[in-house]
Computed example of a mutant assay.
Amino acid sequence: MHDPIRRGGPEHLVIALGSNLGDRHAILAEAVERISATPGVFARAVSTFVESVAVRTSGPDDSAPPYLNGVLVGHTYLEPHRLLSATSAIEDALGRVRTERWGDRTIDIDLVEVGGRRVHDETLELPHPRAGDRDFVLAPWLEVEPEARLTGRGRVADLLAALRGTAG
C-alpha cells in the first residue's frame, strides 16, 4: 500500500481538467474548488479555460460536443497514488461515467506532473504520457507558468511551438 502523505516538503503539481458535457464552466469551477479543498493540495493558479475539439482513440471528432479545458498548478504533500484517488473521487462526485475510453464526459481530471516524478504502473503514469502532444494542456499551462517544463520532454513553450509548427 502507498503511504498517502509524502514526507518532506511539498511537490510541484500540474493538473489538467476538461469537460464536454453539461454546464462545462460550472463543472470545471466545481472541480477546481474540490481539488483546492483537498487536504494536502494547494492550488496556486488556474488557467483560462479554452475550447477544443473532442479527441477519440481514432483522432479528433468534430461531431462530438467540444471540450472546455484548463490547467491547475500548485503543490501537494500527497503521494501521487493518493492524489489520483482524490481526483478520481472528485470525478465520480461530479458525475463522470467511464463507459468508453476517451468518450464524452462531464469531467476529466488528469495528473500531468507531480514533483517531476516518473511513475508507470497499472493505475498511474507520470508525467502524463500525452500532455506534451496536447495544445489544450500546453497552452493553458504556459499561461500560468511561462517557464514550465514537462519532465522528460523539456520546456512547455518549446513543445507548444513545435506542436503548432512555429519557432519557439
Rank of each mutant, 00 (worst) to 15 (best):
residue 1 M to N: 08
residue 1 M to A: 13
residue 3 D to Q: 15
residue 4 P to C: 08
residue 6 R to C: 08
residue 8 G to F: 02
residue 8 G to K: 02
residue 12 H to P: 10
residue 12 H to V: 04
residue 17 L to G: 13
residue 20 N to G: 10
residue 22 G to V: 11
residue 25 H to V: 13
residue 32 V to P: 09
residue 35 I to G: 00
residue 35 I to N: 00
residue 36 S to W: 00
residue 38 T to L: 02
residue 38 T to M: 03
residue 39 P to Q: 07
residue 43 A to Q: 05
residue 44 R to L: 06
residue 47 S to T: 04
residue 48 T to M: 03
residue 48 T to D: 13
residue 49 F to H: 02
residue 54 A to E: 09
residue 56 R to Q: 08
residue 57 T to Q: 14
residue 57 T to R: 15
residue 58 S to A: 15
residue 60 P to E: 13
residue 60 P to I: 12
residue 62 D to T: 13
residue 62 D to G: 07
residue 65 P to Q: 06
residue 70 G to A: 11
residue 70 G to M: 11
residue 70 G to T: 08
residue 70 G to D: 04
residue 72 L to C: 09
residue 73 V to Y: 00
residue 73 V to N: 01
residue 74 G to F: 00
residue 78 L to M: 12
residue 79 E to V: 04
residue 80 P to E: 05
residue 82 R to M: 09
residue 82 R to V: 03
residue 82 R to A: 15
residue 83 L to W: 02
residue 84 L to W: 08
residue 85 S to F: 11
residue 87 T to F: 11
residue 87 T to D: 01
residue 88 S to M: 14
residue 88 S to G: 13
residue 90 I to Q: 07
residue 91 E to R: 10
residue 95 G to D: 09
residue 99 T to H: 15
residue 100 E to I: 15
residue 102 W to R: 10
residue 103 G to P: 06
residue 105 R to M: 11
residue 106 T to Q: 07
residue 107 I to Y: 04
residue 108 D to H: 03
residue 114 V to C: 15
residue 115 G to S: 05
residue 116 G to T: 01
residue 117 R to D: 09
residue 125 E to Q: 07
residue 128 H to K: 05
residue 128 H to V: 01
residue 129 P to F: 06
residue 129 P to K: 08
residue 129 P to M: 03
residue 130 R to F: 09
residue 131 A to M: 06
residue 132 G to M: 04
residue 133 D to A: 15
residue 134 R to M: 06
residue 135 D to C: 04
residue 139 A to E: 08
residue 139 A to M: 04
residue 142 L to V: 02
residue 146 P to W: 04
residue 146 P to N: 06
residue 148 A to F: 06
residue 149 R to L: 12
residue 150 L to M: 10
residue 153 R to T: 00
residue 154 G to I: 08
residue 160 L to G: 03
residue 161 A to Y: 10
residue 162 A to D: 15
residue 162 A to N: 13
residue 162 A to G: 14
residue 164 R to F: 08
residue 165 G to M: 08
residue 166 T to K: 14
residue 167 A to C: 13
residue 168 G to S: 15
